[in-house]
Amino acid sequence: MDLRKTEEKIFKGIMICSTCCILAILLIILITILVKGLPAMRWSMITQVPKGGFYLGREGGILNAILGSLVLAGGATLMTCMISLPIVLYLNVYVRKRTWITQITRFSLDVLWGIPSIVYGAFGFTLMLYLGLRASLLGGLIAMCFLILPIMSRAMDEVVKMMPAELLEASYALGATQFETALKVVARQALPGILTAVLIAFGRGIGDAASVIFTAGFTDHIPTSLFRPVATLPLAIFFQLGTPFPEVQERAYASALILTAIIFIVCIVSRLLTRRFTRNVIR
């Protein structure tokens, strides 16, 4: 009898320890980045592009990478939206029932979700070879689209699936076609959820390095053309860390802080949207 109580206590203790451990790790990571990154933060980091000898520890900033990442991730998110939204609306408005097409599509999206970004990078690279492209903004966009397509589609699917059937019926009853219903009723009603999905995908895109390492290349300039290479924040961090100079490495920490801050903002905004959304959803 007593043994059962002790067992219960021991395991509950272990569980609370594990939970605290995971929380502590998250905190430690954030604090490490903050403590290391803040001292190296300069205004010039986010207002200037690398000057000559930047990677030897001289003047300059990483504006090229910040802008590059924003353009690349933003562009890819937009493009992916154009593909994801129709897919999700098709699954949830047109087909709706559980048929083989919804099952297979959801299943393949789940599987795609698990494929690592380096493989998307490699695949994007082979695609570019076929198309005769060199490392460029366009190449990066293509690879990143593949990467974030499953993330965005599944996240959207989750919210649009919740849409009550009565809402669709009400719209059909007014004589709307399925397309009009999808666009005017479903997409609008689920807008906050859709935006959350978009933000999640954007966050994933802006933080990813492995998919753009072959495809987008790197440059010290601000992106101007689809066919020129483009710099990205994660790669900028990676290259700065790779230099043997402490000053440059410290800049990497500052860059990491910038990237973390961007992710943090994306996370918070999507949380707020989620909350606003779930408040109006009947469960």
Partner: peptide, 23 residues
């Protein structure tokens, strides 16, 4: 806990890499 897990999932791998290097 939910948003914290989301945050953990959202942190880019380069950041984890830096943390690994530092800690």
């Amino acid at each position: 806990f939910a948003p914290l897990i989301d945050l953990l999932a959202g942190i880019p791998s380069v950041i984890y890499g830096i943390w690994g290097l530092l800690a």
